[in-house]
Write a protein that binds this DNA or RNA. Structure first.
Lengths: 273, 273
DNA sequence: GAAATAGTCTCACAATACGAGAATAATATA
DNA sequence: TATATTATTCTCGTATTGTGAGACTATTTC
């Protein structure tokens, strides 16, 4: 592993429980005192880290600045907001927006009027890649190339997730989801929660992400699957055409491209805390 | 400059106008093709960058993930929200929350009911370090050490900003601001906009940031300076005690520590676009 | 399927990241 | 304001490893 990678791994020390790190934490990750300081120094200079009192360091202002840039420019986020809020208000239903990043699926936005449903997700929360409607909807629309690579490099995970025992099964499962144009999952991420998802594309019909209704099992039963499916498909279509509408000008913002997907997050499957 | 710094400088290629970069952009910043790919590779592996189609790269999911961590844990942000919204609703006034990061001042949150005032700021927008009520309020509360260092390394900027021609003047100006407990600036960042700011501290009375009212000159005239000053001081005090209340337990989150402040952002003074 | 584009690997060499300790800076304490 | 303590940077010789050029492989497009 190069020194570049080792330095960037310092960022991995942060997590929900640990919001500040110290010199020793970096040393413990395998670096001499001098080197630990060097990494910290570079990260601080770039603003990714910021020093606080007592020799500890926190995430720095650059993070917030860069996130602002992403929020401003992400076509998914900027174009999905209004339609999402419309539908959510009309149906009184919880909606999530998911973004696909080549090797990661992430919650990009939520509208959550049904407060009795636990608000597990929020912008920036990573999501499992093989479970839940958000993920499967996206998975289904990757290119054949990408799907084959996933089976090749992560067949074990595919099998665990029940997406197919082999390439033929996986391929045909994904193909069916694609034809359906929606995906329903029950309790795959959070018990008792049903996800109803549909895909969002860019102007070139590449998968960008997904929108998902998150409802309790009881509501899903009473509401009737067909209506919810029809609504989510309409919502996704509205967002897709809003994105296609703005396009043509600037270069496509983000799209699928996982190549070998060598490095799925090691524990991409720890959703319920 | 080390290879670490060179790699991190790739992130500086992004900006409001440029949301995706290409191999050539990295090469142009001074790296061979192989090295450019190496930097990109490391940044992609860490999730700071993500590949898109056509050999271009955008900011990656890690940015959003890390920003979430910051939002969740920042005591300033989490404790200021409610009081800010209260006051803003009661007075129908625009309020900004500013965060201090050792060498940078940044907008952390805004509540903006007075829509006729241009919404120049938003979370993540960097702010000038020597102009405007947000910045000066913070500046005034740095330690003597820090102030001296600023004068030493950035005396020119201090003079330009009219904060004092020499150390004695600078020191006494800051000292007066500190005694006042508030700071009013007029049109320093945006023409016709008056800022009324007060400092927010952590449990150990170290400066964390500032809250600022942003009103038009006309309203400032009619409303009466005293009332607004009194309100902003109360607001800041409420936030400070909310933060002190939660403290004691976890290690202080963020606080001043600019050491030499060798590297103020080169153009920290380009506010009005 | 083939052609065109994007990304990775190999290898020899020299630049530079590394570790240990001394020197200095910044904070806490008196 | 001066002193003690803790945190950070600097110096320097060594050898690790980052570097560039080009061949090779992977991926997308047609």
């Amino acid at each position: 592993m190069s020194s570049l990678d080792k330095m960037l791994k310092v960022l991995d020390l942060f997590g929900e429980e640990r919001m500040s790190i110290q010199l020793e934490d970096v040393q413990a990750a395998g670096a001499s005192r001098a080197t630990a300081y060097r990494y910290i120094q570079s990260l601080c200079d770039s603003g990714l880290l910021a020093p606080t009192t007592g020799g500890s360091y926190v995430l720095g202002p650059r993070i917030i600045e860069l996130d602002r840039l992403v929020r401003r420019a992400d076509p998914l986020l900027t174009r999905a907001g209004a339609p999402m809020r419309d539908v959510s208000a009309r149906l009184g239903i919880n909606v999530m927006l998911c973004s696909y990043y080549g090797d990661k699926v992430m919650c990009a936005d939520i509208v959550w009027p049904e407060r009795s449903v636990p608000e597990y997700y929020e912008r920036g929360r990573p999501m499992p890649m093989f479970r839940g409607a958000m993920a499967k909807t996206i998975l289904a629309h990757l290119t054949p190339y990408q799907l084959r690579n996933i089976m090749l490099w992560h067949g074990e995970l595919v099998r665990e997730a029940g997406l197919g025992e082999n390439w033929e099964q996986f391929r045909s499962n994904m193909s069916r989801l694609r034809r359906d144009g929606y995906c329903v999952t029950r309790g795959e991420v959070i018990p008792d929660l049903v996800g109803i998802g549909a895909p969002v594309f860019d102007a070139e019909r590449r998968i960008l992400g997904s929108v998902v209704f998150a409802v309790r099992e009881s509501r899903f039963q009473s509401a009737g699957k067909e209506d919810l499916v029809s609504e989510i498909k309409q919502l996704a279509a509205r967002i897709t055409s809003a994105i296609a509408g703005e396009a043509g000008d600037r270069p496509a913002q983000r799209a699928a491209r996982p190549r070998k997907i060598r490095t799925l997050a090691p524990e991409d499957a720890s959703p319920v805390e």
